[in-house]
Simulated assay, not measured.
Amino acid sequence: MTAVAERPATTAAYDERALRPRLRPGRRIRFGFWIGPLVLLAGWCLGSATGLLDERTLTAPWTVVSTAGDLIATGRLQESIATSAVRAVLGLALGVLIGTVLAVAAGLSRVGESLIDGPVQVKRSIPSLALIPLLILWLGIGEPMKVITIALGVLVPVYIHTHNGLRGIDERYGELAETVGISRWEFVRSVVLPGAMPGFLLGLRFAVTSALLALVVVEQVNATSGIGHMITLASNYGQTDVIVVGLVVYAVLGLVADSAVRLVERKALSWRRTLEG
């Protein structure tokens, strides 16, 4: 009878031991982030080599490399990348700054939240790209319009995730701060900002993607330089290889930027024990 009674407990303990290792953080695969893109590249090469991918529809990788070499030799590719990078960095920096300031103001004050959160949610429901015609009327078709469009696409994810991170901080920390008697600035510096950091970095990852998506569009709206302009010209002349070169550049920029944010996140949040390992 005792053995029968102990059997379910033993089985439960065994199941727990069997499941627990799967939930433990595993050893991180070095450069694992690049495995997926490399597999995709290998599939592209295989499809082009076997004829499954028509080169008139999708240029072969080796043709893309050759075309990129020609563009580099003329200096056209470097100039386009530099122009696009400046636009993306300026828009990203401006959007991150505004989004962070708004999130902190809304997260630390009920009045601030009442004034800020509603308009940001309204902006969230309106795609930044839908505002381009209005921004052109206000700012013209120059660089300010392009940078502001990118910034508008960036500030929303930064605000949303940073604000959620601030609101997720346990209220008991605030009560403890009042008990200890530390200043408000010290509380913000020592508790609030570290507590909001995971949300901010997550928002930054989304912001990088949003910046590139906005960059693709604004560079095809009356632009005279940049990767998007190069793609538009190539489309007009049916140069599929140049189009694919531009798309590959966008993809590489996105992967490099996301990898950089991941590295910062791993260093800044090294104290966290997550399932990612």
Rank of each mutant, 00 (worst) to 15 (best):
R272K: 08
L135N: 00
A60Q: 07
E175M: 15
V244N: 01
H163L: 13
I98Q: 04
I160H: 03
V158I: 10
Q239P: 00
R205C: 06
A223S: 14
V188P: 07
V86R: 15
S80Q: 02
L233F: 15
I148P: 00
L201S: 10
I150N: 04
A257Y: 05
V191R: 01
G165H: 07
I35T: 11
L204H: 04
K267F: 11
L77A: 02
L134A: 02
V147L: 05
S210Q: 07
S109D: 05
I29N: 08
V245I: 07
T10Q: 13
T57Y: 08
P8E: 09
E6V: 10
V120M: 07
D241V: 00
R110V: 09
A49T: 06
L77P: 02
G238Q: 02
N222S: 04
P37H: 11
L152G: 04
F31L: 12
E113D: 10
T50Q: 05
T83S: 14
G195K: 05
A85T: 08
V217P: 02
T83I: 07
K146D: 04
W271M: 10
R184C: 00
R22H: 14
I148C: 00
V242T: 02
V221I: 03
P119A: 07
P144S: 10
P198F: 04
E16H: 06
A211N: 06
P8T: 07
S66P: 05
D241T: 00
G118V: 13
T83E: 06
T232N: 05
R17Q: 07
G118R: 14
D54Y: 12
D241E: 01
S270H: 11
E219F: 03
S84G: 11
D117T: 08
V242Y: 00
L94K: 02
T83L: 10
W62Y: 05
I98S: 02
D258R: 08
V104F: 11
R266N: 15
W185S: 08
V111A: 10
G168K: 10
I160W: 01
G226I: 00
E6M: 13
I132T: 01
L233D: 12
R76K: 14
G238I: 01
V208E: 05
S235R: 14
W44S: 09
R189Q: 11
S183P: 01
G69Y: 07
G165T: 13
A93Q: 04
N236R: 09
W62P: 12
E16W: 05
S225N: 11
L202H: 12
W138M: 06
M145N: 00
G43S: 12
W271Q: 06
S109G: 05
R17L: 13
R87N: 03
A207T: 08
T100V: 04
R22P: 15
A268H: 13
A49E: 06
M145S: 01
I98F: 03
A211H: 04
G153D: 09
G165W: 06
A207L: 15
M197L: 09
V208W: 06
R28Q: 10
E6N: 14
V156E: 01
V86K: 09
I98L: 03
W62H: 09
I29P: 15
V86E: 14
T57A: 13
Q239M: 09
G153C: 03
G228A: 09
P198Q: 09
P21V: 12
M230L: 15
W185C: 01
P61F: 05
T232C: 10
